[in-house]
Design a protein around this nucleic acid. Structure first.
Length: 293
DNA sequence: ATGTAGACTTGTAGAT
DNA sequence: TTACTACAAGTCTACA
């Protein structure tokens, strides 16, 4: 489910219902995706949720320092990554429990914050208040906030394919496969172009495309491919505005050519072969994976 | 520095 | 109908 717009949608939903409430207990199912399961039950009860923030694709629940000896470690953060199929939301205890729900954080008012994740590619971890800045610094810039000069500087001279760099969370935080392809289509840049070979007009178009697409996707509450729903359980709408992603063989909205699919940076990549001309040089584009065996 | 394949895991769609 | 394959919003590691 979750790239920047989907995570932002979840965060906005949680922000209306979580701050001010206190975690009273924790129940866990499968824990292989949790950094330190025992620490959750030990350190979370008694802490109040102060804020809900998004750091790229991570969700940060900022918790109070709590009280008593076991909370002498000060302010704490519950940091959650949704992986491919994660979901986080608040339900009443009597509400049906979705399959693959692996964490329940019970609140003082009886409700519970639930984490559901079919594939368990997600992540749950605790980060001490004092370590949060270092955690955030390992991530790149927010694409909705980055200046033109910084955007250019981060890509200048890089010989990697532009799509690989857009997906690199240490360069920009929050962009994933869908929004990389949508942004490159909007900016008319082939995903396999080398960043170093893009001129400033290309880069300016790309930055604006990313901003515009992410903003629109947030307004539409994300893209519901397969199983994404927001914190209230409602699907997003942005998948109806996709111009490239998932549209192999369908006509380009600009020129009518058939959208193609290839593999770039190890991910399926959708692009218009006419609007997004392939780089001349090398074997920049591999064919889509073929059946093996 | 960069690219690729494979790994983690479960479900679903599609071809046979 | 059943069995099988490819693929999926993400990221990490090993190896070239």
């Amino acid at each position: 489910m979750p790239e920047l717009p989907e995570v932002e949608t979840i965060v906005r939903g949680l922000r209306t219902v979580l701050p001010g409430h206190t975690i009273v207990s924790v129940r866990l199912g499968k824990t292989d995706f949790i950094e330190d399961p025992a620490a959750l039950a030990e350190l979370l009860p008694g802490r109040r949720i102060e804020r809900v923030e998004r750091l790229g694709k991570f969700i940060q629940l900022q918790l109070s320092a709590g009280s008593g000896a076991k909370h002498a470690d000060g302010q704490m953060n519950l940091v959650i990554h949704l992986g491919m199929t994660g979901w986080l939301g608040v339900r009443r205890p009597e509400d049906p429990v979705a399959p693959h729900t692996h964490a329940f954080f019970e609140l003082e008012d009886g409700r519970e914050l639930r984490y559901t994740d079919i594939r368990r590619f997600g992540q749950i971890r605790l980060v001490h208040g004092g370590n949060m800045a270092a955690f955030s610094e390992r991530l790149g810039k927010e694409p909705l906030e980055i200046s033109a000069s910084e955007f250019h500087a981060r890509l200048a001279g890089r010989r990697a394919r532009i799509k690989a760099l857009l997906l690199d969370q240490s360069i920009f935080r929050g962009i994933g496969n869908i929004y990389a392809d949508e942004s490159l289509w909007q900016a008319r840049i082939h995903p396999a172009r080398l960043a170093a070979r893009l001129n400033s007009a290309d880069l300016a178009r790309l930055r604006k495309a990313i901003r515009r697409i992410l903003q629109h996707a947030i307004e539409d509450r994300g893209s519901s491919i397969s199983n994404f729903v927001d914190a209230e359980g409602q699907p997003g709408e942005y998948q109806q505005r996709h111009r490239a992603y998932g549209r192999e063989g369908k006509p380009c909205f600009r020129c009518g050519s058939k959208i193609r699919r290839g593999s770039v940076a190890g991910r399926s990549s959708y692009f218009c072969p006419r609007c997004q001309p392939a780089p001349r040089r090398a074997r920049a584009m591999r064919n889509a994976p073929k059946p093996r065996g």
